[in-house]
Design a protein around this nucleic acid. Sequence first.
DNA 1: TTGCTCCTCACGTCACGTGAGGTGGC
DNA 2: TTGCTCCTCACGTCACGTGAGGTGGC
Lengths: 255, 255
Amino acid sequence: MNIGELARRLRVTPRTLRHYEQLGLLRPESIDHRTGYRAYGPQQLLLGVQIEQLKAAGLSLAAIGEVTEGGASEAILLERRAEVTTLLARHRAQLATIDALLGARAALAEPRVVQAPAFPAVIVRAMSEPDELGPTIRRTVQRLRRSVHGDGRARCRSFSARFPLELVDGPVSVEVAAHVDVAAPPAVTVPSQQLLTVELAGPVSLLPLAYDALLDVGRDRGLPLGDTVIEHYLDLGTVGRTEVAIPVRTALRAR
Amino acid sequence: MNIGELARRLRVTPRTLRHYEQLGLLRPESIDHRTGYRAYGPQQLLLGVQIEQLKAAGLSLAAIGEVTEGGASEAILLERRAEVTTLLARHRAQLATIDALLGARAALAEPRVVQAPAFPAVIVRAMSEPDELGPTIRRTVQRLRRSVHGDGRARCRSFSARFPLELVDGPVSVEVAAHVDVAAPPAVTVPSQQLLTVELAGPVSLLPLAYDALLDVGRDRGLPLGDTVIEHYLDLGTVGRTEVAIPVRTALRAR
DNA sequence: TTGCTCCTCACGTCACGTGAGGTGGC
DNA sequence: TTGCTCCTCACGTCACGTGAGGTGGC
C-alpha cells in the first residue's frame, strides 16, 4: 500500500503521513530506495487508526508518540482532560463576552460625564481584604438578591458596588446596592450624582483596567474626580456588561 | 507614559505592545527619535482596554483591528460566536473520547479472534441510504430503547448494529439489536459466533477506519471473513467505546 | 506521450516568549 | 558607577497546507 492509499483510508493527506514519519510516529514498512516510494502494511494501518483515535482526544502528536510507545497513557490522558476542561471554561466565558458585546452598542464606548438620576436601592455594607474584593462582592450580591426576593415587595433590576479607588493594605469597606423598583423601606434613595463612566463587556477581571483608564481620562480633561469607584453590573455572573464609574466632585463654590 | 507602565496597567508585556504596534493595532502617541523610546497617553490606554476586552471574546488580532477601525463589528462577533460554538462541541467530544479511553484498557487493543457467546436481544430491521447509515442507526437505537423500556420486562445492557461490509448504491438493510437481560419474547437468542474484533474509543466517524483495517488484518492472517460488520456500542451517544467486529466464516468442512 | 502519483525542500500560519547584543536615564 | 528600562533583530512554537521543481509508473 503506498502513501496515497493509506492516506485515503485514514482520511488524512499524504503530507500528514510524511509529517508523522518525521516525528517518528508512523514509519513506513519499507522504502523503495530507487524511487523513494514508501510502502505500508496492515500494522501501519492499525497504528494509523490508533493515532487518529488519540487525535480525536485532542492529544498533541508528541503526546500521541508517548502513548503509542507504551508510555504512561493514563497520566497523559488525565493531563489532557484538565486542559480540555480549562478550554471549555474559557470558551464559555468567551461566548458570554461575545453576547455581552453584541448586547452593548459599541465595543468600548467613549468615557462620558453623565448626571445619573436618583434611584431606590437596598444597600448593605461589607468588609473585605483587597484581594478578596471580587468574591466578597459576588457573595454579597447573592445574599442581597435572596433577601430582596424573599421580602417579596420589590424586585431587583441590577446591582452595583462602591469601594475606595485606592486599595491599601488592610480591609476595605464595600457598599453593595440592589437597584429595586419600589422606593419603600428597606430601600433608600440614592441621590442623583455626576459620574465619569464607561461601559465594558467582558469578565470582571477587566474592570480594574477600565477605572484605571478613567482616572487618566479624568486627569486629562481636568475633571475633579472622587476617590471611590462604582461598578454597575447589568448582567449577573462573572462575565457580562458592566458600567464602571467614578463620581465627579461637584463644584466647591456650591458650599 | 512609557511602554513598561502601559504594559503593567494593561496586564500584558512590553513585547505584546510592540507586537500590536507592528500590526498597526495600537501605535504610541509619539516616539523619541533620539532614544527610540515610545510614549503613550490616555487615548492609547483606552484603546488598550478595548483591545483586551475584544481579546476576552477570543477575537484574533486581525479581527480586533477591524473592529477598532470601525468595521462591521456585529458580523465579526457573530462569526467568532459560531467558531466558539464549534470549539465547544469539539471539546465536549474530546472530553467524551478521553473518558472512553480511560475506561478502555488500552489505546487501541490488538485485533483478536474471539468466540462471542450467545446472548438474548430484541432485534429490529431498518432500511437506509448508505450515507444516512449513522443517523438511521442512532434513531433506531432510540426507538428500540424506548420500546424495551416501555415493555418493562427486560432492560437494555447495550446496543449493536449489523450491516453489509460493502456499501453499494441504493438502500442497505441494517439490523439493530438491543442486548437485554432476560431471554423472553420479544427477545430472540443470537447464537454464538466467531469474530475478528477490536475495541475503539472515540467518535463514531472512526468506526469505518477500524473495520477497513480489520479487513486487511484478516487477509494478512488468512482468516475467511464474512461480508457484514457488527458495531457494538458500549456507551450511548455519538462518542464512546465501541467494539467493531467482522464475523469469521466457520470452517466449510462442517457442512 | 499523457495524466497520475510520488519525491524533497522550504516558506507560511498565530500571538507572542525568549534570548542576544546593545544603549539611555536616575 | 550600578541597576533598571528601553531598543532592535531574529529564532521558536504546532500541525500541517501549499507551492516549487522534479521524477517514476501505466
